[in-house]
Design a protein around this nucleic acid. Sequence first.
DNA 1: ATGTAC
Length: 353
Amino acid sequence: MSVFASPSSWIESDALDQCHQVAALDGMIHVAAMPDLHPGKGAPIGAAMSSRVLYPFLVGSDIGCGIAVFPIRIKRPVAERLAARFPDLDRPVDPAGIDTDIPAGYAEQLGTVGRGNHFVELARVHAVHDDAHAARLGLDRNDLVLIVHSGSRGLGERILRAHTEVHGAGPAADVGAYLSAHDEAVRWGSLNRRLMAARVADALGAAAEDPIVDECHNSVTVVDGAYLHRKGAANGDGRDVLVAGTRGTPSFLVAAHAGADANYSVAHGAGRKMSRADALRRGKAKHTVEELRRTPVGSYVVCGDRQLLFEEAPTAYKKIERVIDDLVEFKLATPVVSTHPVVTYKTADKARR
DNA sequence: ATGTAC
């Protein structure tokens, strides 16, 4: 097991315990813990775990969850006005006319963002850290992008549940069947991120562009003849990855170059510092709803769910700069640009309906 | 993170 975090980067001991438990599983080859590591339900979040045996619970229920970045051009981006124009992403799009293979019964959730840490964010390039790489991506300071973090919604949950009901935390009995369902959820998640970007761009009066980044962070793939499970860890094998900050702090687009010791993976975000329960309890004592809806960087958070607003408060997460410093120090990635939120959509704003 | 159960 390798932990890619400096000694001064705090990591919850429960999460390290979970990594050791995973490392002791039958067939496990190597566990690489990322600097955003935190405890998950059964398995750690922020880890890449290679094994001779495929364990569906190590990927979790949100198979295919990932983060995509879409360039967007808006003439006069006034945050408050744009916040009011975001579409309702809790309501699905009409699947008729979408020319793609959609698993039966799951067309009805297409175009929806879900809950938890998922979001759709209009963000502005705040700083360029690698001029040449940013230019290759067509990004310059003050450019706008849509950042979409979402997964396979009910589809992935159903795939994991079908396995767990029979085999619990045991290995996949029919690897081919699991992988084919998994791959379908990965495609569905990526399609869903594109649909949401198109919905938001349309509502803001802009054209939807192709994504410049789209990396999944909950998946299992065959790498070097082993099953490489990633849970809250993105493919870092020569990919560009958006490492998400919080709804009120920067995010970083990085060029990843992680090797075998890191299981070819990089961190996917800031990583929770507090459980949802703690964030809710402590957040209510520390913050008002107003200050969470209007953040320190001047951005707006669209979120009609008060509890979710507290659970997702920036103070519930680790400092993104520390996570990025660790990725750089361990030579897993190089920053390309950082972004600041302008408007983050979490869930429909009931107050305005 | 999710649908579902409490």
